[in-house]
Amino acid sequence: MHVTLEVWRQPGPDTAGRFVTYPVDDVSPDMSFLELFDVLNEQLIKAGDEPIAFDHDCREGICGSCSMMINGRAHGPERGTATCQLHMRKFSDGAHITVEPWRAAAFPVIKDLCVDRAAFDRIIEAGGYITAPTGGARDANEILVPKSAADAAMDAAACIGCGACVAACPNGAAQLFTSAKIQHLNLLPQGQPERWERVINMVDEMERWFGSCTNHGECEAACPKDISLDFIALMNRDYVKAQFKQRRLAGQRR
């Protein structure tokens, strides 16, 4: 196969970037999209050009490092697939592929295709946990968790924090990420004591960085873990409930 890549090159956070075109020959259909970049980088090094910086690590679709806007879609054309798991067999011979970094105010470009996604950590910091210091836990089977609740929590918890939802959202909103994290914990019995505080704190933190949801559904379509839009509805409901609730009587602050 032969493909033509048009890649966003930007030397640093404060410098201007531009698209640069690179033709790549001898592309095998079994190659992953990141392996295509490996090959291209080898070529660049040979030619004395600085290789393209891109985030990647596990290359198994679970660490959430890889982050490329491929032909206008977050993680490219294959549904439910991270960039690292996208293979060249999904492209036709002679394809023209444009690759751009995630774009959002909260995801500033570091270099080329690398962006800083620390804002996600801040959202988790604001309440994306269950307070359970080591050592105090009771026997694991003491609290029963209905299978359906555990499965639903797992559906939400599958989020890999890659930021594709933000990248794909026309509003630059992080509702899918935040709702997945909130609902993972809010659906479990262990998460109930902090439920209302959690949703308020995490949503407030999210809105300091990201846009708002207008229910386009682009996030769901881009999510490499197929996380459902339903979690956003559940988050909205929890947030509104929390606003109207007498939280002190629920054992929670304010």
Partner: peptide, 30 residues
């Protein structure tokens, strides 16, 4: 106000053409 919030969330637009999958004409022209 929400529109302004969303604009601020992405000050630099995508420089290549977006390919929307789920967003329909109605949702994008609200």
């Amino acid at each position: 106000q929400l529109t302004r919030m969303n604009r601020r969330a992405r000050p630099v637009r995508y420089q290549s053409k977006r390919d929307y999958v789920a967003a329909n004409y109605a949702s994008r022209t609200m």
